[in-house]
Amino acid sequence: MGGFEIALMENNEIVTLHLKGFLDAHTAPDLESELQKCISEEKYKVIVNFQELGYISSAGLGVFMGFIEEIRKNGGDIKLTNMSSKIFRVFDLLGFPALYEIFRTEEEAVQKFT
């Protein structure tokens, strides 16, 4: 069983979440509460690194939809990085690249924030 883990790093106002394992309807609430925590702590510059994520369903994508409005309203953004082609295909299928900035590396996303 792969499960799901989130590792959190903070550096100069930017919070980076490293996702690992499977993001589905069962594990999506874990990511939801991490993003909720960012908002309640007024940390609106968020990078999500998908390097170690093996799977995502629409429940996982829905989490990003649920927070992006509030984060952008406060001058921040959720930027997505290091997606495998498997993960990117799901985002692409639902037209998400039109709504989110997706970067090859975390460094590119950091540069965009600063």
Partner: peptide, 9 residues
């Protein structure tokens, strides 16, 4: 996408 709805996909 423009309405940023959650779920139902």
């Amino acid at each position: 996408l423009s309405e940023m709805r959650v779920g139902g996909l």
